[in-house]
Write a protein that binds this DNA or RNA. Structure first.
Lengths: 136, 136
DNA sequence: TCCTACGATGGACTTCGTCCAAGTCAAGAA
DNA sequence: TTCTTGACTTGGACGAAGTCCATCGTAGGA
């Protein structure tokens, strides 16, 4: 059983075959699948798994902080299992592919108090846009 | 006629009443409307304007670089007419409202060459997330 | 004023995601 | 091991956001 599954059991997650398959599909680095791709890959191993279950499970993994939602303008959300190591994203404007990157600096600290307008700022998301070697 | 409309005419834009109304709705600072809100406000002045026209016009304004699309996870896109002055966004996780902010620092420079993986990085988008005073 | 290519229309369609009632099953209790 | 129960899954309906397209209308140049 993967580390992820072990942690989930430790949190009282009921371990069903569907959840196991979804968690396994999301294993690895630089994985940024859409819900539909997750469903496709999960269905390859467990043909009867439903779309609703995939959405439910992804939502739970996000709520538990095990998986990040990556926002992509005008496309389907992507899910990033690498939530435990903080990182940002580099997105190709051509083909939509995503790389994890680790900028230096402190983006959160770069926002002065005067620019927070009374908001309680909890996180910052930095997305670099450009063209990958294949699309350039 | 606003500056925006003047610029658009200069670029050969055919000025129809529909486009004029959409451009007028998007005038001002700290305006971050969804396509639907734009349609609603435009229809208040020009009742027969169609959704398709609003989408077309917004798409053209984005392509011309006059308006920015603001990505919001799991919600409708918002359109930001303040494309000419560089800024970033502070988004309320509760109600989805958006403020323009101006962080210090150089987010683009914070990405080391070794972390660019051969990409031609053109821009960076920084989104701060938190709760506005009303939702906190 | 007339022409015509560009733009607008609205309704069908697609994509992405959520909801729900009914059926199923993991895992603790006995 | 079997029972029990409530959490989980299912599939289909639904909804929101956005796109497409055939047809009609009109801005603006001749």
């Amino acid at each position: 059983m993967s580390d992820l599954l072990r942690r989930l059991r430790g949190r009282g997650w009921r371990l069903t075959s569907q959840r196991r398959v979804v968690a396994e599909v999301l294993d690895g680095d630089h994985v940024h699948l859409t819900a539909d791709e997750v469903h496709l890959r999960a269905a390859a191993r467990l043909p009867e798994i439903s779309r609703a279950t995939v959405y439910n499970t992804l939502g739970e993994l996000v709520a538990l902080g095990e998986v990040l939602e990556v926002s992509t303008v005008g496309r389907a959300k992507r899910y990033d299992p690498n939530a435990r190591r903080p990182h940002q994203h580099l997105v190709c404007s051509g083909c939509g592919s995503v790389r994890d990157v680790h900028p230096v600096g402190d983006a959160l600290g770069d926002l002065p108090e005067a620019e927070r307008f009374g908001f309680t700022v909890g996180s910052v998301e930095v997305t670099y846009r450009g063209l990958c070697p294949g699309c350039a």
